[in-house]
């Protein structure tokens, strides 16, 4: 069945597919800020790059909360989101975010001002901040994968893609902040991450196409509608293929690194928006006992 044959009920009272509309663009921007920021912070922490750490912390501590609060119905009660870490990935992520910002700022302070401090303290702080950054980089993928309602999200690929996109966009951004020779040495790692992303995209398309009707519909939306030009043009070509080609062909070129960085960030941005746009609820078709073939 092609996408043109599927029934989308929208706001009508017909049985059909309905688009996910509860999480809007502001949620996508918040997810993006968190994953890019956490990835940049994590990579910069490993490379002792203060500028990257500061920028990563700023993205996570300002961009993400701002966009979440614009989405939230009752922002004044947002603190309540941390109350159920036993069952909700949102609560776990919020605690991870607070840990990343708290330990990250402490690690930064020790790195800048703590000349006399023992390296054990700094390593302890770095370990805690890095662990929390990894939670921030992945928890949104887990939150999405736990939604059985949106079939295309209900997959282990979501947290994996979150992690890989966070690390690759963080590394691409960090390479722009580092001296050229250090950045050139990181090119093989970026290439490896981009190959990983290509593999994840193939897995995503394969799992969706061969998944249930909801997942299949989402993939059809991605490949057969208006969204195809954004997915194939920005996410795949500009976000993965072009940066991989540039990184492989000219690892020492600053211009290539700049274009790669812009491409990876733009590709990830398009992916974050698209994954929200193509989410659909399946029609409640199995309850119609009269329809033929059911």
């Amino acid at each position: 069945m092609a996408i043109a044959d599927r029934v989308f009920s929208g706001d009508t009272l017909r049985v059909g597919y309905r688009f996910q509309r509860h999480w809007d663009n502001s949620m996508a921007y918040a997810f993006y800020c968190c994953e890019v920021g956490a990835g940049l912070f994590f990579v910069s922490l490993l490379l002792d790059n203060l500028a990257g750490m500061v920028l990563g912390l700023l993205l996570v501590s300002t961009g993400k909360p701002y966009f979440h609060l614009t989405h939230m119905g009752v922002p004044m009660k947002s603190w309540r989101a941390m109350l159920r870490p036993d069952r909700s990935w949102i609560s776990r992520g919020l605690l991870g975010l607070m840990g990343m910002v708290g330990f990250g700022v402490l690690a930064l302070l020790v790195m800048v001002f703590g000349e006399g401090n023992s390296p054990t303290e700094l390593w302890g702080l770095k370990l805690l901040a890095g662990g929390c950054a990894l939670v921030c980089a992945t928890y949104q993928g887990f939150a999405m994968s736990h939604s059985s309602a949106i079939a295309i999200w209900n997959s282990a690929i979501m947290p994996l893609s979150s992690l890989l996109y966070a690390l690759s966009s963080g590394l691409a951004l960090a390479m722009l902040l580092l001296p050229a020779d250090t950045a050139a040495g990181l090119a093989p790692i970026l290439l490896l991450l981009l190959l990983g992303l290509a593999l994840v995209q193939l897995m995503f398309l394969h799992a969706g196409w061969h998944g249930g009707p909801g997942a299949r519909t989402s993939i059809e939306l991605l490949l057969q509608t208006f969204y195809a030009r954004w997915y194939l043009g920005v996410t795949v070509t500009a976000g993965i293929a072009l940066p991989a080609l540039l990184t492989w062909a000219a690892p020492t070129s600053i211009l290539a690194q700049l274009l790669s960085g812009i491409g990876v960030l733009a590709g990830f941005f398009a992916w974050r928006l698209l994954i929200f746009k193509i989410g659909v609820y399946e029609p409640i078709m199995t309850m119609n006992p009269f329809a033929p073939g059911r």
């Binding site: 509860h22 119905g73 947002s78 736990h146 939604s147 059985s148 309602a149 609820y281």
Partner: peptide, 16 residues
Amino acid sequence: AKCIGCSSCAVACPYD
């Protein structure tokens, strides 16, 4: 009184 309006429940409900 406890709801923060994050809509995560709405995204999780298969029946919308």
